[in-house]
Design a protein around this nucleic acid. Structure first.
Length: 319
DNA sequence: TGGGTACGTGAAAC
DNA sequence: GTTTCACGTACCCA
């Protein structure tokens, strides 16, 4: 099993304490139980069945060659080194302050193909640019010189998995959204049957949630086609969580899912610290980020269907 | 009450 | 058998 040609990791809402100064390996045992990570692998993956394992190995042991991670710097995730700059992933709208809102990707990290250290990517746009070509152009630390002139493979990793964040592997080689369009990743709560949803937001603000909708929209708005916007620019592939049980498995072809699906017990639930962001780093001016946009999916929610859980979350968190 | 969002689920694809 | 796609809809807020 060789290293996949490219990966993108998504680290989600978290309460972080430190990023740098610790290796993945040193955190494996203690953090994997806590981190919620999403991982998507490269297209190559001849061994899909072992992809998850490989991803985990990559993440912790540094075997991956080109990986990308998203993390949420609002949660105090930035290292004590040079700030990567503002992250522009899903700026919270008015509704996003709602307690319904679940974990959301806040920032982006890619693994250097050379030294295997993680480098923060300053903007979503840059991340998407890297991701689009990561198979052909593996990311290396020198690439980061574009926004951090003094960075090199000799510098410590920007981020390590300390177990307080949600990690996901993003898919490589996803096309950047057309100009004016936004690709939105919305993470669902833990225990849902699906990890996340992808939306494309048209310049008009219209949100499209499937290829079918995109196609309809492009037909209804032929001006985009004249601008070169076509379906190949869209991908609804979602990242995969490293924590396998973040997403509830669906029973095979059973409509009466209650028969087969055992709700997670509280102590089985990933004890995420979905706390609000630690302002420390913000106060230090390390990041210019949107305010917290996430409310924690409380572990309580795992005892019941997600929709019910939402009620609980609201009741517990809000007001 | 209408619009937006998050979640569940049937069907299709793998 | 499992994953992904697509979309219906419950729920919440303004």
């Amino acid at each position: 099993m060789q290293s996949p040609p490219g990966k993108a990791f998504v680290m989600l809402k978290s309460e972080a304490t430190d990023f740098a100064g610790s290796s993945f390996a040193s955190h494996v045992d203690s953090t994997f139980q806590e981190a919620v990570a999403v991982a998507s692998s490269a297209s190559s993956s001849s061994d899909d069945d072992s992809q998850e394992t490989q991803n985990e190995d990559d993440l912790y042991n540094g075997n991956a060659s080109k990986e990308m991670v998203l993390y949420n710097p609002t949660a105090n995730g930035i290292v004590d080194s040079t700030p990567p700059g503002p992250i522009q992933c899903q700026p919270p709208g008015p509704r996003l302050s709602s307690s319904r809102v679940l974990p959301s990707v806040g920032a982006f990290t890619v693994q250097c193909a050379s030294c295997l250290k993680w480098r923060l990517i300053p903007t979503k746009e840059k991340y998407e640019e890297i991701r689009e070509h990561i198979l052909e152009n593996p990311f290396v630390c020198e690439t980061a010189c574009e926004w951090r002139p003094d960075i090199s493979c000799d510098d410590p990793t920007d981020i390590s998995q300390d177990g307080s964040r949600l990690w996901a592997i993003d898919k490589p080689n996803i096309a950047q959204p057309p100009p004016g369009w936004q690709r939105l990743l919305r993470i669902r709560g833990e225990g849902s049957t699906k990890f996340a949803d992808i939306y494309y937001q048209a310049p008009s603000g219209k949100r499209l949630r499937s290829m079918v909708e995109v196609q309809k929209y492009l037909i209804e708005h032929p001006q985009y086609a004249t601008e070169g916007v076509n379906l190949s620019r869209f991908s609804f592939q979602i990242p995969k969580p490293l924590q396998e049980d973040y997403v509830r498995k669906r029973p095979a072809h059973r409509t009466n899912s209650h028969d087969n699906v055992r709700p997670l017990e509280p102590d089985e639930v990933n004890p995420l610290a979905w706390a609000g962001p630690d302002d420390t780093d913000l106060l230090h001016g390390r990041l210019a980020l949107p305010p917290p946009i996430v409310e924690a999916p409380v572990s309580d929610s795992s005892n019941r269907p997600a929709k019910m859980a939402r009620n609980t979350i609201r009741t517990d968190v809000q007001k």
